[in-house]
Design a protein around this nucleic acid. Structure first.
Lengths: 140, 140
DNA sequence: GGCTAAATGCAACATTATTACAATTAGCTC
DNA sequence: GAGCTAATTGTAATAATGTTGCATTTAGCC
């Protein structure tokens, strides 16, 4: 919910401004990754105007607080749907409808770490997106 | 080797042009991800000029033939160092020296597919990068 | 209501990416 | 090796995306 994000913002000493609420509103509604200009466009159709610089800055903030993620493959932004404490976050991206599903799995994470360790590599973060078909689109 | 890539290009009916050789040469030498303009700059210091449009097009082609990869984390391009038949490709990216190590592992791939399957997701591709410290930099 | 730091808007600019079309060239044939 | 042609590259113009410094506005406090 948008309300939760606002609360977290404020708890960290950030203000609950109109532009921030608007951006969170859009990210909360739309499941597909959105670019800053996408967000601007969507708000525009609703008669609300935000400067693109503002949107860039808000998205930076949201990402730094783990309230949003920047998708690596597309560069678009999505609202974070997991608790920050759940471990390394990954994504399933449906090639058909574009919907994102976020998940976390500690076991898989550990296996990957072990795998890398065999090569002498010391892993700090996992960047991982699976692309394919979500259950809905697969049935069709 | 660059020579191998050229052979693959030609086998697929593409011409072995001077610009393509130059781009492959740079990607073959430098281990870190390079943007199109990086490549242009490097060539420039060597007294060779390529138009950026050409470089964009060449990189598209190389990626479509799996002779290069676009890195998720940086958006930069690296030369592919594995055989295309080896399965899904992943990367270890050293945060310190920036070096990329590419690898493939069918078991890990299968586990990830199974994991996604539990959510009803049908995986087609894995995009995966580990960031951390390579063996060299970890020792320091 | 008034104050102040934080946040936004604005303008200008920098960087990165794309398009349409003209010029060039690799690889073929003779 | 000269000539041909489709493929490729270069050019120029433009679009899209991202950044910076500074003036203006506003949320949250008293």
């Amino acid at each position: 919910m948008v309300r939760d994000s606002i609360r977290i913002l404020q708890a960290q000493g950030h203000k609950a401004t109109r532009p921030r609420k608007l951006v969170l509103e859009v990210l909360g509604e739309i499941e597909n990754p959105l670019s800053p200009y996408d967000i601007q466009g969507i708000l525009h159709t609703r008669g609300k105007y935000l400067n693109h610089v503002t949107i860039y800055r808000i998205l930076d903030l949201l990402c730094s607080l783990n309230l949003a993620h920047k998708m690596l493959s597309s560069g678009g932004f999505v609202k974070c749907s997991l608790d920050a404490t759940e471990g390394c976050h990954r994504f399933m991206v449906c090639q058909h409808c574009g919907a994102i599903r976020e998940f976390a799995d500690k076991e898989l994470c550990q296996e990957e770490n072990d795998f890398a360790q065999n090569f002498g590599f010391h892993t700090e973060h996992h960047l991982s997106e699976f692309s394919g078909l979500c259950s809905r689109c697969y049935k069709k």
